[in-house]
């Protein structure tokens, strides 16, 4: 519930407020990228190898004369878009499977959890690389690949929550008053298990952004979308001559991931007040 208590608890964590501020700034940058930097970020804007603070390019230009600042702003769109959609997809897969496993228990639980473990045993970055390489790189395939490699922890979390809530008396009362399984799952248990799921989802957005950057660093990004990972990957050969080409996109990644982690921690404090108090 997003009431005033929630915000007070959230605001008590100074880091979380800072994280939220950074995140809002990044979202604004992404939303108004074409206002701040009209034109295609792939287009040549100035001379190549312009250092930062030069006339046409605040953060310098790359080997082909593309504006780094413009690339970062447009890249923010891609990063946030991929981070959010792939987390949403991972939530859909993970929470559904976890809920079913936790609610039904027994054989259903066994089957779903073995399936989950199958995914957990494969190193997720390798799997993501393979998936993107098989299905030609595009925004959709990248989102799917990231979702497919990152749902298992969410499934395990949702399962644990459902397992413990299923035996609670209010759920048993729902059974004795004749509610259907889907009503019990959606209306009784799910709302009570959301807090930890929201917290780990917020952290998962950060992981997804890192995964996307790593993929595009390896050249497996969407060739039509400017992305931070791609910028670093492209600039790595000239890192000795032109540090700005990789440092600024790198900073963008660090700031975004840091902000998301801070926000996640703040959410954790606000949604699990008992833990927050023990932090002192």
């Amino acid at each position: 519930m997003m009431n005033s208590d929630f915000w007070r608890a959230f605001a008590r964590n100074k880091g979380a407020v800072l994280g939220l501020a950074i995140l809002i700034a990044i979202v604004v940058l992404a939303a108004f990228a074409s206002v701040f930097f009209p034109g295609d970020p792939w287009e040549m804007a100035t001379a190549p190898f312009q250092p930062p603070l030069s006339e046409d390019a605040l953060l310098g230009s790359d080997m082909l004369g593309r504006d780094i600042a413009s690339g970062i702003a447009h890249g923010a769109r891609v990063s946030l878009l991929i981070g959010l959609t792939s987390t949403a997809a991972a939530l859909a897969i993970g929470v559904t499977l976890g809920a079913l496993a936790g609610f039904h228990g027994g054989k259903v639980d066994d089957a779903i959890m073995r399936f989950t473990e199958l995914f957990q045993t494969i190193p997720n970055f390798v799997l993501a690389v393979v998936l993107v390489a098989i299905f030609t790189p595009s925004l959709t395939t990248i989102v799917l690949a990231i979702a497919i490699v990152s749902w298992p922890p969410l499934a395990r979390l949702a399962r644990a929550e459902f397992l413990s809530l299923r035996s609670r008396e209010f759920v048993q009362a729902a059974i004795t008053t004749g509610q259907s399984n889907s009503t019990i799952i959606l209306r009784q248990i799910l709302p009570n298990s959301l807090s930890p799921i929201i917290v780990s989802a917020s952290l998962m957005v950060a992981t997804a952004i890192l995964l996307e950057s790593s993929l595009s660093f390896l050249g497996l990004g969407d060739p039509n979308a400017m992305s931070w990972g791609y910028m670093i990957g492209a600039a790595r050969t000239v890192i000795r001559q032109a540090w700005w080409m990789s440092v600024f996109p790198g900073l963008a990644i660090v700031l975004t991931v840091l902000a998301l982690n801070l926000v996640g921690e703040g959410l954790n404090d606000a949604l699990n007040p008992k833990l927050a108090r023990s932090r002192g």
């Binding site: 609670r168 008396e169 209010f170 009362a173 004795t176 709302p191 009570n192």
Partner: peptide, 16 residues
């Protein structure tokens, strides 16, 4: 056949 449960703190859904 209806039931009244033991734990008044666990038997009501806190979100409803």
């Amino acid at each position: 056949v209806q039931m009244v449960f033991q734990d008044p703190y666990a038997s009501l859904n806190p979100r409803h």
